[in-house]
Every structure is written in C-alpha cells, then in structure tokens.
Design a protein around this nucleic acid. Structure first.
Length: 360
DNA sequence: CTTCTGACA
DNA sequence: TGTCAGTA
C-alpha cells in the first residue's frame, strides 16, 4: 500500500473511463469552470475524490437536461448536495419506470383486443396517444423543480419594514387558504387548518420554510403592491391570489365546523373505494386529482400498489372522523391487515390530498 | 505510448 | 463533443 496517491488520484483518461465520459468532455467541463482538477509537474490533470463527486453531480444534472452553463450557475453558489441530487435521480428514474410500465400494460391490452378481432374505440386510441406521447417533459420539469426546491437555502437579512407588504390573506386554486402574518421582525405562514410556521427570507419577496422544503415567492402587481404569491412545493408551483380576510376566515370556520361535527363528505366512501381500486390496478385517475397531488401520487403509485397487493382483498371500510386538517379519515380493512386512509377534496371536487398509512 | 492545447466540424 | 495535428 505504498501507492496511496494513485488510489485516489486519477488521470484524465482513468477518470473519464470511470465516469463514462471522454477526456474531451472533462476538458470542456473544466473550461466552463465546473471542475478544477489539480495538475502534476508535467501539467497532467489529476482528479481526486472531490472532483469525482463534482463530476457525478454534473453528469446527473446533465441527464436532467441542464445545459453546462445552467449547471455552472447552479453549482456556483453552494457546494455539492450530492445526496439530494441522488434522491431526486432515484425519483426520476422510478417515475420513468412507472410510465414505461403503464404504457406497456396499455399497449399489451390493446394488442390482445386486436388479436381477438376487436376494433379499438376512439377513446382507447386517445389514451394510447396520450400515454405514448407522454414523453412528458412536465414530469421532468416537476423532477427538476423538486430538486430546486430541496436545495439548501441561505437566509439573508431583509428589512422587516418590507414584511408589512406581505402580511395578508391568499387563496390557492384548490380552495386552500394561506394566512401570512408579521410578528415583530419575523414572518409567519399558516395554511388553513394547520399550525403556523416561520418563513425566512432568501431574497426580496422570496421566503423559504424550514419545516418542509417549500418556498413562497410574493408577486407584485401594478404599483408594486403585493397581489399574490406562488407556493413552491412538491415539485409544483401553485399560484395564490390575494384575498380579503373574510375568505380565509370562512374557510377556517367551515373547516372547524366539519371537524367538530365529524360529518363525512357525501359519497366519501364510494370515492375512497374507487381510489383504492384504481391504485390496486396501478392506474390511478390522475385527472381526478389536483396537479400537485397528481405529481405526488405518480411518485407513490408503485409503492401503494405493492402495499395493496400485500394487504390483499378489500373487506370493508368505515368512516372514522374528520382530522384537524379537515381530511376525511377512514379505517380500511383488508384480508391481511388494516390501514387508515384519509383524503380531502378541492373546491372543484377533485382530490386535493390523499394518504394511506398504518392504522393507529 | 500518453497528455495537453487549439482548431475545426 | 469527436477528431486531428503538433508537442512535451
């Protein structure tokens, strides 16, 4: 073990081979300022662990479709958030696999129909077109946003006087309200029915939460008045319009009443049954969900399906109550165990939230 | 035999 | 980013 240095320092060619790159590519990255390998006396490039890690990150970001200059901008600020990036990569690949499996199942069933001499309905052809054409840049966009949102944030000092501009009431498209309040020199945000959390400034008009990877960017209308905000969360960007305080108060009062009375949403049981059935088939109805939930559901569809398979046949479900957040909670019994499912609907009747977990 | 730079596609 | 030339 005398050749310690050779163990960790790679020449350009060695490094390129290990990373699946070419020496040419390494040179390009270096000129872009993405990596800075040190040199030997003969001016040969030497890549150590730090450079290798950096290269891995570059490769991953490139797979996401980022340009070299884009990567340079991203990496210039902070050090490598390798784990966050890998987690995101994993998510992206899982999404990809699920999309491919969906497509394969669909094509398979359609071929079976044709083989049996049947004609395909226009509806089936439309789904086929949709699924296959869904090379879906939007999924990649969501993956990218998720990475962006999960990256470490740095707090800046912002003149608290500005906070007065932000304090107010906001309404998301799915009927959920946000209440922003200023206390002394701090800013707090409350989602209707949820506890208040502090928001920290990272730029003028831009704040981030520490409890979850989410950011809030306030938007200004004519005259520079704050007219709304955009909530960045779960790889999604949801706009919210500024509204009068009575709007959010009504939402919260209605919520409180529902929680107190424990009244289930009409047809809740039937809705839940069909959602469970869809997930068991691995074909959730994403159109019946708000986009942010659909994005989440796509990620978890595989895991939920596996779990449902393990649990076996659905035996029955019973309404348990309304959670403090206003979700209808049901006890769901399966052959091989029980679970607790909860959901909440958006104003337009689509699912805005859905969760499944071990019964408590 | 290898890397490095610069140039061109 | 591949490739080629001319070096060290």
């Amino acid at each position: 073990m005398t050749k310690r240095r050779e163990d960790v320092l790679l020449t350009a060619a060695e490094c390129a081979e290990r990373m699946g790159l070419t020496v040419r590519a390494l040179r390009v990255y270096e000129r872009q300022g993405l990596v800075a390998p040190r040199r030997t006396q003969k001016n040969w490039r030497l890549y150590g662990p730090a450079e290798i890690a950096r290269l891995a990150e570059i490769v991953a970001l490139k797979r996401l479709g980022l340009s070299l200059s884009g990567i340079a901008r991203l990496l210039s600020g902070q050090g490598a958030d390798l784990d966050g990036l890998l987690a995101m990569q994993q998510q992206t690949l899982q999404d990809l696999r699920e999309r491919a499996e969906r497509g394969l199942r669909l094509v398979g069933s359609l071929r079976a129909k044709i083989a049996a001499g049947a004609l395909l309905s226009t509806d089936e052809l439309l789904t086929l077109a949709k699924e296959t054409n869904m090379t879906d840049t939007s999924q990649d966009a969501i993956a990218w946003h998720r990475y962006e949102q999960a990256r470490p944030r740095t707090e800046i000092r912002l003149d608290p006087v500005l906070y007065a501009d932000y304090a107010g009431h906001y309404l998301l498209a799915d009927g959920i309200g946000l209440v922003v309040t200023r206390k002394e020199d701090r800013l707090f945000v409350r989602v209707t029915g949820q506890p208040e959390v502090e928001a920290f400034p990272e730029a003028q008009d831009a704040f981030f939460l520490k409890v979850v990877p989410a950011q809030i960017v306030f938007t200004r209308g004519a005259g520079g008045v704050v007219s709304g905000l955009v909530l960045h969360q779960n790889g999604y960007e949801q706009p919210a319009a500024r509204v009068g305080e009575e709007i959010t108060r009504n939402i919260e009062e209605a919520l409180a009443a529902r929680v107190k009375n424990g009244t289930p949403l009409p047809d809740g049981e039937a809705l839940l049954r069909s959602v469970i059935a869809e997930h068991r088939l691995g074909e959730p109805d994403y159109d019946g969900m708000t986009p942010p939930l659909a994005a989440l559901a796509r990620e978890q569809a595989g895991a939920i399906r596996d779990e449902l398979e393990r649990l076996g046949q659905l035996q029955g479900l019973s309404f348990k109550g309304v959670s403090p957040m206003g979700w209808d909670v049901y006890d769901v019994r399966f052959e091989n165990g029980g679970q607790e499912w909860g959901f909440t609907l958006a104003a337009d009747g689509r699912f805005a939230g859905l969760y499944a977990g071990p019964s408590l």
